[in-house]
Design a protein around this nucleic acid. Structure first.
Length: 799
DNA sequence: GCGGACTGCTTACCT
DNA sequence: ACAGGTAAGCAGTCCGCG
C-alpha cells in the first residue's frame, strides 16, 4: 500500500502508456525546490455516443473491434439533460479512442458521436476540476490519485528566460548548418551568458565549443528547475533550433522532464516541454495586442522594450553578430544576448499574473492558455461550464458547415454620420461592455432562442429584428456572462481599495482583467463560424438591440437639447450647448441609466475642448475619423491617416501638426505655413528616407494576388534580388524617382533605396496634400492655399 | 486612341 | 483564426467621344 502526497503548484499534465497499454496521467507539481511527478492510473479516455436504441448500442459495443484491435474498455448509459440517450464509451488509451471515433457511427443505433475531440490531458484537468498554476495537494495511493485539494501556495514562480544567438553567414540561420554562438539564461538572481569564444564580459561563461556549451546550459537549467521557461519567439525559432543542434551534436536536449515537442498548429508552431511551462513572450504580446491591451506596431524585442518599459536597447543586426563573432570581438554580442534575456524575463513577469489567472480559471496549462485565441478561451470556459452542469458539449462544425456559416452574415452596429466641421465643448458617453450587458439583459443564448412560450414572443421581449429569448429560464451563455460581470464588478471594487503594487493587488487585478477578456469575447464567438455554440441569430439579436439602445440614447440626448455630433456602436459624442455643462451631462446620463436594464450602463468618458470631423474625399461626412482635444491639451486622433501604418511619416507627422495647430492653438494659418514648409523640404529633396517609408503587410503568398499594388510590386522586385519574404511580414517601401506609369513601378523596398531617391511629386500630391486637405477644407481652405502663394487665412469668424 | 469615370481589390482602421 | 462597418488608395477596365 504505497501512498504519496504532494503539495505545490500544479504545472503540467501529460500522459504515458503503461505496460498493459493503459494510459497513465502524469501530473507535474512544483514545490520550493523542484518539480515532482505524480501518476494516476484511474482515468481512462472516453467520448459519448447518442443512440436511437441505447440497449442495442450497449450490446453492440461489447466486444466490437474498431480496427487494429481497438475496442471499448467499457460503456455505460450516461443520460444528460440535453441528450437523454447518451452512452459514455471508455477506451484503454487515446490512440484506441481515435481509431474508434472514426468507426463508431457504424455501431448499431448510434446516430451521433460527441466530445470525441477533447485532448486526453485537457479532459483530465476539466473533469478533475484542477487549476493549473494554482496551489494543490494531491494524494495518490497505489498509482491512483485519490484526493485533490486546493491549497494556498505563496511563493514566487521560478522563471528562467532563454535566448540564443546563432551564426548566419549572409542568410537566415539554418540549424542544420549554422552553430549556436551564445545562449543566455536570465533569472531573478541575474543573467549568465554561455559561449565559447574569449570575452571580457563578467556575465559570460566560456566553454570550449558549441557542444560543451549546450551541455552546460542544459545542466544548469536542470538545476535551476524552472517552473516557467520563457523565450521570445521560441515557438518558431529558439526551441526548434536548439533541438536540431542537439541532434546534430549528439547532445541530449533535456530540460528536465523529456524532449521538446515542436507542434505545427496551422500557421504557427508551438514548442512544448513536458514538466515545465514554455512561455513564448512573443506569442503573448501578440495576443495582448490583438485584444487591445497593449498598442504596438512593431514586435521586435528592441521596440517592445522601449515602448513597454521605456528602456532603450541596442539592436545588433545579424550581420553585426557575424562580423563581431568572426573578428573574435564578442563583448557586444554578449551584452546584446544578455539584454535579450532580461527583456524576455521582464515581459514574462509583466504578463504572467494575467496568464496565471486565465490558466487557473480555464483549467488549462499555462502553455495552452498563453497560446489560445480569445475564441478558444471562450470555448474552453463554455466546455467547463457544460461539464459542470453535466451537459453534452456541441460538436465542432465540419468544413462544409463552416463555409455555409461564413456566407451568412448579419447587420452590425449603428454608426451615425458625423456633423463635419470644427466644434467646441464636447462630451463623450459610451455604454460599458455593451454587447455582454445586452446578452445578460435579454437572456441571449443559443438554447433560449425562440422558445415556445407566448409570453416570451411578444412585446418588449422581442428584439428589433424579431428574435426573442426565453424569459422563464436563464440562458447558458447569458448566465455565465452575468456571473462574470458580477464577479468582475466585485473584484474591481476590492482592487480599488487596495494598495497598488502588492502581490495581492496584482493577483486580483489580473483576475478582473481575465474576466474582462472573457466578457468581451462572447459576442464575437457567437458569430464565429467555427464555434461550437455558433448562433448567427443570437449574434444578430445582440447587434439589433445594440442599434436600438444607442439610437434611443441619441434621441434622448437630442430631446434634452444636445446635438449628437457622432456615434459608433456604443458611443456618442455630444455637443454641449451654451448654458449647459458637464454636470448637466451627468444628470442626463443618470436619467438614461434609470431607464436601462440593470446590467446596462451608459458611462461618462470625458469632456473635450474641441473636435473636428471631416468630409469624405468623394463627399459626405466621414465616419470613424475624428480628432479631439481635451482641456489639458491632449490630442485624441481617431481613424485619420496619422494612426495608419500605410502612410508615410512625412504625411502623418504633418497631419498631426496641422490637427494640433487647429485644435490646440486655433491657428489654421500656422497649419498652412507648416504644410508649405514640408512641401518645400520635399521638393528640395531634403526629406530622409525614414520619413518616406510606407508600411504594408503582405497578407498572402505573392502569387495569390490578382491586383499588384505597390507593396506587392516592391516585394516581387526584392524577391527577384534574392530576398526571402514571409507571409505576414510588414514591408516598408518608398516611391522612388524611377520612371514609370504606375506607383507600383516606382515602389522599392526601403532597403534598396538610396537617401534622396524619392518622387517628391508623389509624396506631395498623394501623401501630404490628401492628409492635410481633408482637415483644412473644413476650415474653408483649398489646395491652392496649401501650395505656393495662395491666401494665408480664409477662416471665417469661428476662432 | 485617349482620358476620365467607375469598379474591384486591398489594407487598415473603429467599436 | 471573435464580429461587422467604414475610408481610401491603386490597378485595371469601361465608356464616351464622334
Amino acid at each position: 500500500m504505497a501512498t504519496n502526497k504532494l503539495n505545490g503548484i500544479l504545472l503540467d499534465c501529460g500522459y504515458r502508456i503503461g505496460e498493459n497499454g493503459n494510459s497513465v496521467i502524469q501530473l507535474y507539481v512544483s514545490d520550493e525546490r523542484s518539480i515532482r511527478l505524480i501518476e494516476d492510473n484511474s482515468f481512462s479516455p472516453y467520448f459519448y455516443v447518442v443512440s436511437k436504441d441505447p440497449q442495442k448500442t450497449l450490446h453492440a459495443l461489447e466486444g466490437h473491434v474498431f480496427g487494429e484491435g481497438a475496442r471499448a474498455l467499457r460503456a455505460e448509459l450516461s443520460p444528460k439533460e440535453n441528450a437523454p440517450n447518451a452512452i459514455k464509451v471508455y477506451f484503454k488509451n487515446p490512440q484506441e479512442l481515435v481509431r474508434a471515433r472514426e468507426a463508431i457511427e457504424g455501431v448499431e443505433g448510434v446516430y451521433e458521436r460527441r466530445e470525441y475531440d477533447i485532448p486526453f490531458t485537457e479532459r483530465y484537468l476539466i473533469d478533475k476540476c484542477m487549476h493549473p498554476m494554482a496551489g494543490v495537494e494531491i494524494e495518490e495511493k497505489d498509482g491512483n490519485v485519490v484526493k485533490i485539494n486546493p491549497r494556498e501556495i505563496k511563493r514566487d514562480l521560478r522563471l528562467v528566460a532563454l535566448d540564443l544567438e546563432t551564426y548566419s553567414p549572409g542568410r537566415f540561420s539554418d540549424a542544420r548548418l549554422d552553430p549556436i554562438l551564445m545562449c543566455v539564461l536570465s533569472a531573478q538572481g541575474g543573467s549568465k551568458v554561455y559561449t565559447y569564444k574569449k570575452t571580457m564580459a563578467k556575465e559570460a561563461i566560456v566553454l570550449s565549443d558549441e557542444k560543451e556549451m549546450l551541455e552546460r546550459v542544459f545542466s544548469d537549467l536542470r538545476s535551476m528547475s524552472p517552473d516557467v521557461l520563457v523565450t521570445y519567439n521560441g515557438d518558431s525559432f529558439d526551441m526548434p533550433y536548439i533541438k536540431e543542434r542537439c541532434e546534430r551534436l549528439k547532445v541530449k536536449c533535456d530540460f528536465g522532464f523529456g524532449p521538446v515537442k515542436v507542434v505545427h498548429r496551422g500557421m504557427y508552431n508551438s514548442a512544448e516541454i513536458s514538466g515545465t511551462q514554455h512561455l513564448d513572450a512573443y506569442a503573448l504580446i501578440k495576443f495582448m495586442a490583438r485584444i487591445g491591451a497593449v498598442s504596438l506596431v512593431k514586435f521586435d524585442i528592441e521596440n517592445v522594450s522601449e515602448k513597454l518599459f521605456g528602456k532603450y536597447k541596442e539592436k545588433l543586426l545579424h550581420t553585426d553578430i557575424n562580423g563581431l563573432w568572426d573578428k573574435g570581438d564578442i563583448d557586444r554580442i554578449v551584452k546584446y544576448n544578455r539584454e535579450d534575456g532580461e527583456v524576455t524575463l521582464q515581459l514574462a513577469k509583466e504578463f504572467l499574473p494575467l496568464q496565471i489567472q486565465l490558466a487557473s480559471m480555464l483549467r488549462q496549462t499555462l502553455f495552452e492558455t498563453s497560446r489560445a485565441s480569445s475564441s478558444q478561451m471562450v470555448e474552453q470556459l463554455l466546455i467547463i461550464r457544460s461539464f459542470d452542469r453535466d451537459n453534452l458539449i456541441p460538436n465542432r462544425p465540419g468544413e462544409a458547415e463552416v463555409t455555409q456559416r461564413s456566407l451568412q452574415t448579419y447587420e452590425g452596429g449603428f454608426v451615425r454620420s458625423p456633423l463635419p466641421g470644427l466644434h467646441e465643448n464636447i462630451a463623450v458617453l459610451d455604454f460599458r461592455s455593451l454587447h455582454p450587458t445586452i446578452m445578460i439583459s435579454h437572456n441571449i443564448s443559443p438554447e433560449t432562442m425562440r422558445c415556445s412560450h407566448d409570453e416570451c414572443k411578444s412585446g418588449e421581449n422581442v428584439s428589433p429584428d424579431g428574435d426573442w429569448f426565453c424569459m422563464k429560464r436563464k440562458g447558458f451563455l447569458s448566465g455565465i456572462l452575468e456571473e462574470i460581470l458580477k464577479d468582475r464588478i466585485e473584484l474591481k471594487r476590492k482592487v480599488k481599495l487596495m494598495e497598488k503594487g502588492t502581490q495581492e493587488y496584482k493577483m486580483l487585478n489580473a483576475r478582473q482583467h481575465a474576466l474582462k477578456i472573457l466578457l468581451n469575447s462572447h459576442y464575437g464567438y457567437l458569430g464565429y463560424p467555427r464555434s461550437r455554440w455558433y448562433s448567427r441569430e443570437s449574434a444578430r439579436a445582440v447587434t439589433a438591440w445594440s442599434r436600438h439602445y444607442i439610437q434611443q440614447a441619441m434621441e434622448k440626448a437630442e430631446k434634452d437639447g444636445y446635438t449628437v455630433l457622432y456615434g459608433d456602436t456604443d458611443s456618442m459624442l455630444l455637443l454641449i450647448p451654451n448654458g449647459k455643462n458637464e454636470e448637466d451631462v451627468r444628470i442626463f446620463m443618470e436619467k438614461v441609466n434609470d431607464e436601462l436594464p440593470d446590467a446596462m450602463e451608459l458611462e461618462f468618458d470625458g469632456m473635450y475642448r474641441r473636435g473636428i470631423f471631416v468630409t469624405k474625399r468623394e463627399g459626405g461626412a466621414a465616419k470613424k475619423k475624428y480628432a479631439l482635444i481635451d482641456f489639458r491639451g491632449n490630442l485624441k486622433i481617431v481613424g485619420f491617416e496619422y494612426v495608419r501604418r500605410d502612410w508615410a511619416i512625412v504625411a502623418k507627422e504633418t497631419q498631426r501638426q496641422v490637427i494640433e495647430a487647429v485644435l490646440k492653438e486655433g491657428d489654421p494659418a500656422k497649419a498652412v505655413a507648416l504644410t508649405k514648409g514640408m512641401i518645400k523640404r520635399l521638393k528640395e529633396g531634403k526629406v530622409p528616407k525614414a520619413e518616406l517609408v510606407i508600411m504594408t503587410m503582405l497578407k498572402r503568398r505573392i502569387d495569390k494576388y490578382e491586383s499588384i499594388g505597390p507593396h506587392v510590386a516592391a516585394a516581387k522586385k526584392a524577391i527577384a534580388r534574392g530576398k526571402d519574404i514571409d507571409v505576414g511580414s510588414v514591408l516598408g517601401f518608398v516611391v522612388t524617382k524611377k520612371n514609370g506609369k504606375s506607383i507600383s513601378e516606382k515602389a522599392e523596398l526601403e532597403e534598396y533605396v538610396a537617401e534622396g531617391n524619392y518622387d517628391a511629386d508623389y509624396y506631395i500630391e498623394h501623401q501630404i496634400l490628401p492628409a492635410v486637405l481633408n482637415i483644412m477644407q473644413e476650415l474653408g481652405y483649398d489646395k491652392q492655399d496649401l501650395i505656393s502663394g495662395g491666401k494665408q487665412s480664409s477662416l471665417s469668424s469661428f476662432m
